[in-house]
Design a protein around this nucleic acid. Structure first.
Lengths: 227, 227
DNA sequence: ACTTCCTTGTGAACGTTTTCACATATAGCT
DNA sequence: AGCTATATGTGAAAACGTTCACAAGGAAGT
């Protein structure tokens, strides 16, 4: 690491941060919120690790990629560390999210409080079912997916969440990319193609069930689940 | 690897299989189902890799942990490989699943077709809201969570899915473990404590959104997402 | 039967991530 | 001011996972 990592919470040295580290930041954030509510002023890497089933060394190493936030002999200041991590993750702001597919999963996501709590505001709903288009779902009028191009731009959407059937997911995603969206969270159980400059993440809910099935059948040696 | 790995699809040599490998098996399974529908008899590691954005070497290595399923010069037989992987993952059978918490997420999961398609049958619903208990949700009567002990045993439940609020998740999970369930999929955004002999997996849906946020804010170098 | 082409299966090399271990720094107490 | 206890930050080592590269096996055609 050439340049210094000051305490600004920015990864100024251009070292690649691993996916796992970023996922763990989410865990730290969650634990810190609880600690803050419980009234703790500071927390050690040991305690933080314990609360998320990690190791103290892992916690310190992860944080060290972004700066030095702690005080030797004392630990980390709960409130400011939480703010710093929120800053690193970019959720110290509001993100405007559009949801595609107001079916079972989609509807559940609209009401999912954890999203809004983390700053993700679902402010547009799209579907291609004529019976749904135009109707009001939890205060949001469902739009026709065919109009996404104008409506996404108008609403200044940052992130698209895709909860449409696997059969149409690729078409929808093609359009989303054409509309200039650079971040997509996909719930359809299919591998989607997107241009290189678009971030795509998949949420595959049967995968974890399948893991459980495998573990049960094979008496798979337990290990702390990655992330 | 001491003993031979025959083509039974079992990991007979007790080498630890990584979490990532198991997750990729889910992907192979998915791709193979599509290939089968498309009428392919065989598939190469190259093609399989392409369909799930992996490398051919990775595909071959993953499969080699469990046996040799392919024919040199030809590739893998689609139908039988699909069956073999289903066998390895333990989803060539029906799993009986109970769902706890019939709220937004819970209701969506009950109707989530992908679960049943993979052999996970949600046959019991539990809640602790008196207004919900006794009512019929998609053909299943919602039970009182206080009666879980008898009802889980009676229905021979294998896996519990937890979709209750974070505030009560630990209590519910304590009871689930006491009732003898050995596999739990948790949707509550909290780190749960379970005995060593219970498999616990977490589905944290905001985590991936937070990753997208991080990527957007930091122009994070793209890399094929792990899993 | 022989040749050519293709693709698997796998040790070994490589790269990445995690863990270790310790020098260093600070708090708090006497 | 000095001492002790505590906890960070970080190079180095270890563990782990991925990719390479190639020998070996089989298909298909001549």
């Amino acid at each position: 690491m050439s340049a210094r990592n000051s305490d600004t919470g920015v990864n100024s040295g251009k070292k690649r941060i691993s996916e796992s580290t970023i996922h763990r930041l989410s865990l730290y954030l969650r634990a810190l919120s609880v600690l803050e509510k419980e009234g703790h002023e500071t927390v050690s890497s040991k305690e933080l690790a314990k609360r998320e089933k990690l190791t103290p060394a892992q916690v310190r190493k992860d944080l060290s990629f972004f700066g030095s936030f702690g005080t030797r002999g004392l630990g980390y200041p709960v409130a400011t560390l939480r703010e710093q991590i929120a800053g690193i993750l970019g959720i110290n702001r509001a993100w405007k999210v559009a949801l595609f597919g107001v079916g079972n999963i989609g509807s559940a996501l609209v009401s999912y409080k954890e999203f809004s709590r983390q700053g993700f505001q679902i402010i547009k709903l799209f579907d291609n079912d004529q019976r749904k288009i135009g109707s009001n779902h939890k205060g949001i009028i469902i739009s026709d997916a065919r109009n996404m191009h104008e409506e996404l731009a108008e609403a200044q959407i940052d992130i698209a969440v895709v909860a449409v059937p696997a059969t149409v997911a690729q078409y929808i995603v093609d359009d989303i990319c054409k509309a200039g969206i650079k971040a997509i969270l996909n719930f359809a159980p299919i591998n989607l193609r997107v241009p290189d400059d678009v971030y795509l993440r998949n949420e595959n809910m049967s995968m974890e069930l399948e893991y459980l099935s495998f573990a049960l059948v094979n008496n798979h040696a337990q290990k702390r689940p990655k992330i």
